[in-house]
């Protein structure tokens, strides 16, 4: 059931002399919705372009259901559906003509399947209108429709919430969850706004300057025990305590009587025990949980430029 659908291994990309993607490792399972979050210019679109084969991968590899996009392009591409950046379709053709056009690029997509997809994204009423007359929201939906026509195992949506109102975002959320749960699709959604996609994702990765800074499950207790948080120890003998931590190869910061270390929840008792055994008075231990939002704001400087 939960096979790895998409895997990135040490993916790098330079354009000119500038390294834009600096060794990305990432796995998305079937049925999982993965949020790919980062400020503008972080490298989301560049990563997506490499996944779908629009850009050559600098080094590393991308695998779709185990097939490399580099060495086995056709097999890998069969299982990808995507919108890259804006949902650009042929403006002089109707929605239906656009879908037919892309359906012809695969084997065996029936008219029935196209109709099914049209109703899934709720475009029945305007499907015979020219795409040039569509609103951005309608084009986003048509973009999603062309991306799922061929039942791909991996669906990649680059900023699909751009230009949508809250109601539109909620709708997208609903059918993306539906695709993930009912059809076991692995969905990768990028956005520069955490709040817009947090609710539809199982897991979120934050990317900045071409590096994956953190990955977190959304609303999952299991993850909380593993994630490292900043823990503050207030002790009587800070000097000695610092030496103990040094012996354990832990990096820390010291501020008077306070020592700050990044620890997972399970590691805390061990450290307390070590301190006590060395006769250090421990007055207080505080775990400061950083939420995803805190981390994201830290990355974006709390000031998202749209």
């Amino acid at each position: 059931m939960n096979q790895v659908a998409l895997e990135l291994k040490e993916v790098k990309k330079s354009i000119g002399k500038k390294e834009i993607i600096k060794g990305l490792n990432l796995q998305v399972n079937q049925g999982e919705v993965y949020g790919f979050i980062g400020p503008n210019g972080a490298g989301k679109t560049t990563t997506i372009r490499m996944i779908v084969g629009l850009m050559k991968i600098g080094s590393g590899d991308v695998r779709i259901l185990g097939e490399s996009i580099q060495s086995n392009y056709k097999e890998a591409a069969k299982n990808i559906g995507a919108i890259v950046e804006n949902p650009e379709l042929y403006p002089f053709m109707t929605g239906w003509q656009n879908l037919l056009h892309f359906a012809r690029m695969y084997q065996g997509i029936s008219k029935k399947r196209i109709k099914e997809v049209v109703s899934l994204v709720g475009l029945e009423k305007v499907i015979d209108d020219k795409v040039g007359k569509y609103s951005l929201g309608m084009r986003q939906r048509l973009g999603i429709a062309q991306a799922i026509l061929h039942n791909p195992a991996v669906l990649i949506l680059d900023e699909p919430t751009n230009g949508l109102d809250p109601a539109g975002i909620r709708e997208i959320r609903e059918y993306i969850r539906q695709l993930a749960i009912q059809e076991n699709v692995a969905v990768i959604i990028s956005s520069h706004l955490l709040s817009e996609i947090e609710l539809m994702c199982d897991r979120i990765g934050i990317i900045q300057n071409g590096e994956l800074i953190t990955e977190r499950y959304v609303n999952d207790e299991a993850d909380q025990t593993e994630a490292k948080n900043k823990v503050v120890f207030e002790v009587g003998q800070a000097e000695q305590a610092a030496n103990i931590l040094k012996d354990k190869d832990l990096s820390f910061e010291r501020d008077g009587d306070q020592i700050m270390v990044n620890l997972s929840r399970q590691e805390i008792p061990g450290i307390v025990k070590a301190l006590v055994e060395h006769n250090i008075s421990v007055y207080c231990v505080t775990e400061t949980k950083t939420t995803l939002e805190d981390q994201f704001l830290e990355v974006t400087g709390g000031n998202v430029i749209e």
Partner: peptide
């Protein structure tokens, strides 16, 4: 120009 090249070149066709 239309940006549709992206949708053409992500298909399982060389």
């Amino acid at each position: 120009k239309w940006g549709t090249i992206k949708l053409l070149l992500i298909r399982p066709i060389s």
